[in-house]
């Protein structure tokens, strides 16, 4: 039998796990892919209705559907990456009998799948809004990509932390969804940090998610006010999350195998 290089093995494992995840993760009814689109769509529509009561059609120069899509869809993406990591080890436990499959792989694969699916979802909303007649302008696509990548890596780092905690201490892990639920209301998913009172802005600005969403929005309007957010802060949080996540994983992967 031919000896494979570590890179070839890693690629083969990622590919095979990805195929498996796509078959099982989205459910036997094949509704999962539609649901990835419907869940944010539903929330966007709810908040559009609420904004329309206040007669607002744009926020910071963005039409409402794009403004909401760049908050709600990436937030659901973040949440999904974190929650998917909680069961990553348990759902793949019997695959670890293949030496090629390491404990890290299910985390990586679940993250990669979410990253791809949710990028498409986000694009569908933006192109869709343009398609049905909203005025959509792309002023800085690189800023959008940059923010999406940083958000992805930040989510992945955090998902490793939560994944390790939930695998080793499931009783502590029960609190993770409880923490995630109210997070939506302080992450600028359906409002801009710029519209908040001064005192609240200072508190909200600690939340790296707000930075990611606001920076994404700045890609779709000239002169979108980004004075309260920065790529530097988002990047710092991402590095810390990834560092801590990988450290915790590195220190605990053997124990996770034995649980």
């Amino acid at each position: 039998m031919l000896q494979r290089t570590p890179l070839q093995i890693q690629k083969a494992v990622i590919y095979s796990l990805l195929v498996r995840e796509m078959k099982t993760r989205f459910g036997s009814y094949r509704m999962g892919y539609a649901w990835a689109l419907l869940e944010p769509l539903f929330q966007i529509m709810v908040f559009m209705a609420m904004y329309s009561f206040r007669d607002r059609a744009t926020v910071g120069g963005l039409v409402l559907p794009v403004f909401l899509a760049t908050g709600i869809a990436p937030f659901l993406y973040f949440k999904k990456v974190v929650t998917q990591s909680l069961g990553a080890v348990a759902a793949n436990r019997n695959l670890f009998i293949y030496r090629q499959v390491r404990v890290f792989d299910p985390f990586l694969v679940r993250f990669l799948l979410e990253m791809m699916v949710n990028f498409v979802v986000l694009l569908v909303f933006i192109v869709g809004a343009w398609h049905i007649g909203y005025e959509v302008k792309v002023v800085n696509s690189l800023a959008f990509l940059n923010a999406y990548i940083l958000l992805s890596l930040f989510s992945f780092g955090l998902s490793l932390i939560f994944g390790v905690v939930n695998t080793l201490y499931p009783e502590v892990g029960k609190f993770i969804p409880v923490i995630l639920r109210p997070l939506m209301f302080i992450s600028g998913t359906f409002f801009s940090i710029n519209d908040m009172p001064r005192g609240i802005q200072d508190i909200l600005a600690w939340n790296p998610l707000i930075h990611a969403f606001e920076l994404m929005r700045s890609a779709f309007a000239d002169g979108y006010n980004t004075s309260l957010v920065s790529f530097e802060y988002l990047g710092m949080c991402t590095m810390v999350a990834l560092f801590v996540g990988m450290l915790m994983f590195r220190a605990n992967w053997r124990r996770m195998l034995a649980v």
Binding site: V13, S16, V19, R20, Y98, Q100
Partner: peptide, 17 residues
């Protein structure tokens, strides 16, 4: 993997290798 068919399981292991 219980939720996958015999064929899918066989394909999965082939891919890993």
């Amino acid at each position: 993997q219980g939720s996958m068919s015999g064929r899918e399981n066989a394909e999965f292991i082939c891919r890993i290798y």
